[in-house]
């Protein structure tokens, strides 16, 4: 005890020792995972392409190259000379610029959808799980009812009734994306609620919402982040499907789904690049997210510790 005291006095002047948080441990584990780091690298490249692609493109995404129009199969091929690095689409618009713009829209849809689900779903699920009993019953039945409605039908109805717009797309995606997350967060909260550190906080007299914010949510985040990274691609696929149906973003704006749709329509005319270019970005992004999600799950899984 005396020795401890002496050391304590020695250290009293020294700066406090920095601890290694579970987050720091998880980060180290994540960066040891090569596939996950490769996935992250791909995602960073795709994001950079979306951000800076329009700046370096020689053409605007909505301008038609009249010299190519009418002879797209020959003159609209990908080439370095005329500035159409990825070729042009069927109307003679530069595919590089359009793909960059479509990447922006698709990534935004994916990230906004995942964000809504993380924020709304986590909080909703944590509240339902923490309070339990009748509140939990009512809140989760609401989720069940919303889940039982075919969401594609609702989204199509929304877009038809209120007109096609980015805002409607976000609202529609936001409406459905948080449901699964709420269930996951609730299930995790049920197990966390019985942990002794939560009981300690209750016994101390910490208010219920502070407990949710301080003790429940930080312990949920591991699971939530993993699920969110896996949710981004499903949101992108979802938007692509809507755009494929012709109900997504409006011309001249575009997205991966719309580009793939256009490319698929021209498949027989010998202009395969129109399909392959957006498809390539779509596929590598999905792979990137899946690898990163897997890596995060391995890094954050408490069972590995």
């Amino acid at each position: 005890m005396l020795a401890t005291k002496a050391i304590a006095d020695d250290l009293a002047g020294a700066a406090p020792i920095k601890g290694r948080s579970l987050w720091a441990d998880a980060r180290a584990r994540f960066f040891r995972n090569k596939a996950a780091v490769a996935g992250l690298f791909v995602l960073v490249c795709v994001a950079a392409f979306a951000l800076f692609g329009p700046l370096i493109a020689t053409w605007n995404y909505e301008d038609i190259d009249w010299t190519v129009l009418g002879n797209v199969a020959e003159a609209g091929r990908p080439s370095l000379e005329n500035g159409h690095w990825f070729g042009t689409d069927a109307l003679g618009r530069d595919l590089f610029a359009r793909t960059a713009q479509g990447t922006q829209v698709s990534l935004m849809v994916g990230i906004v959808g995942a964000l809504i689900s993380v924020i709304v779903g986590t909080f909703y699920g944590a509240v339902a799980g923490y309070f339990g009993g009748r509140i939990d019953g009512v809140m989760m039945r609401v989720v069940d009812v919303l889940m039982s409605i075919p969401y594609m039908f609702v989204l199509i109805l929304l877009l038809v009734v209120f007109g096609r717009s980015m805002l409607m797309l976000f609202i529609g995606i936001g409406l459905v994306s948080w449901l699964d997350m709420a269930r996951i967060a609730r299930g995790q909260t049920l197990t966390l609620r019985n942990k002794e550190f939560v009981e300690a906080a209750v016994a101390t007299g910490v208010g219920p919402f502070t407990i949710i914010r301080r003790h429940i949510v930080p312990n949920l985040l591991g699971v939530v982040i993993v699920y969110a990274t896996l949710l981004v691609p499903s949101m992108i696929i979802y938007e692509s499907f809507i755009s494929f149906l012709g109900l997504g973003v409006q011309e001249p704006l575009t997205s991966w789904g719309a580009l793939i749709n256009d490319g698929a329509a021209e498949m027989n005319n010998g202009t395969l690049w129109m399909l392959l270019v957006p498809l390539f970005f779509f596929v590598i992004t999905l792979f990137g997210f899946f690898f990163v999600g897997d890596g995060l799950r391995d890094a954050l899984d408490p069972k590995d510790r």
């Binding site: 304590a8 020294a14 601890g19 290694r20 948080s21």
Partner: peptide, 13 residues
């Protein structure tokens, strides 16, 4: 009986 300098450590340590 704990060093006050350990305040920034985490419980699992």
């Amino acid at each position: 009986g704990l060093l006050p300098a350990l305040v920034n450590r985490y419980p699992h340590e």
